[in-house]
Computed example of a mutant assay.
Amino acid sequence: MSEGVDEAGWDVEPGDEMEPVVQAVGRLLKVCREAAGVSVPEFGEAMGYGEDMIRKIERGARIPRPEFLDRADTFLKAQGHLRAFMEDMRKARYPKKVRELAEMEGRAVEMLAYGNHNIHGLLQTPEYARAMYAMRQPALTEDVVERETAARMARKAVFEREPAPTLSFVQEQVTLERPYGGKMVLRRQLEHLLEVSQLRNVTLQVMPTDREEHAGAAGLIEMLKFADGTAIGRSDGAFNGRPVSNPKDLRILDLRYGMIRAQALTPRESQTFIEQALERL
C-alpha cells in the first residue's frame, strides 16, 4: 500500500467537481498550520507522514481523509475549522461516478438488480470487492484498488436508511461458485449473503444454471425507482446498455426482471441453496 493511503487520502481527479473544495481545504490547512507556528516537517512528523504528502494536501492535489482532518484540527488547535470539512472530504474521496450512483441509491425507494457475472456491488464483502478490482486488466495500482473498494463499501449505507428501501437481488448460480480471491473469500461472501437475506426489506434469489427458460439471457438488469414515481434503469442487452428513464423502456426492463424473479428459486429455496454451497466449500 502506498504511503498515506490509510490516513492521508487519495489524489484528486483533475477536473472533478470536488477539486475546488479539496484545494480550499488544502489552503485552509496551510493557514491553520502557519498560524500555529508549525513547520511542514514538524506537522508531518506529528501526523506520521512525509513532507511531500503534507505539501500535496496543502496544494489540493491530495484528498485528506476525514480522520486526517480530525487529527489535524486537534493538533493545530483549529477550533473546528478543519473538522467542518470532514463530510465534504468523505464524499470527495470517491470517484464522481460512484458519488452519482450513491446519490441515486440514497433516494431510491425500490431497487431491482439481476447479476449474471459477479455478485452485485451492494452485496459484496470488502475482500470480494478488492479481489475483483485487483484482477482488472490493465492492472490497477494498489492506491486505485483501495479507493474503489472503499467507495463500493461506502454505498452499502443504503442498507442503513430509514425508512428502508425495498431491495430485490437475483444472482446467477455461477456468481456464488466462482472463487474470486480464493475459497475463504468466497466462504465469507456467501455467509454475508445469508446475513443480508435475513433483512426484512431485502429479497435475494438464485437463478439456477439448469433453467431451460431464462428471461435474463441478454445480461444484467438494474433499476432504481424513486418516491415521485420516476425511475432509471439499464441493461447490457437493451438500449445499447445506456441508462433509460422513459416509461416505455422502463416497462420492458420491469417485464424482464419480473420474469427472471419468477424463473429463479424462491427466497427460501435460495437461502437453502447458499447454505448447501457453503457446505461444499
Rank of each mutant, 00 (worst) to 15 (best):
207 M>Q: 02
265 L>R: 08
252 I>P: 04
250 L>G: 01
156 K>N: 05
227 A>I: 13
99 R>Y: 03
39 S>W: 13
81 H>F: 14
20 P>S: 07
94 Y>T: 05
260 I>Q: 03
185 V>C: 05
228 D>C: 14
120 H>D: 12
251 R>I: 14
64 P>H: 01
205 Q>F: 03
264 A>G: 04
44 G>N: 00
264 A>S: 09
48 G>F: 12
2 S>L: 05
262 A>Q: 07
17 E>M: 07
262 A>V: 13
111 M>P: 01
63 I>N: 01
192 H>Q: 15
9 G>D: 02
81 H>S: 12
240 N>D: 15
196 V>N: 02
22 V>S: 01
63 I>G: 00
123 L>P: 01
270 S>F: 00
233 G>A: 11
243 P>A: 11
271 Q>A: 15
213 E>S: 10
236 D>L: 15
227 A>N: 12
110 E>N: 07
103 E>P: 05
41 P>Y: 05
119 I>A: 00
167 L>G: 04
3 E>R: 06
4 G>Y: 01
43 F>I: 02
84 A>T: 08
271 Q>E: 10
54 I>F: 10
12 V>P: 00
134 A>V: 09
172 E>I: 15
186 L>A: 03
138 P>G: 10
182 G>V: 13
137 Q>L: 08
112 L>I: 03
14 P>Q: 04
73 D>E: 07
94 Y>V: 02
131 A>D: 00
74 T>P: 07
51 E>F: 08
208 P>W: 07
160 E>Q: 12
224 L>W: 09
260 I>R: 02
246 N>A: 13
230 T>D: 10
243 P>Y: 13
14 P>E: 06
140 L>K: 01
63 I>A: 01
29 L>I: 02
49 Y>M: 13
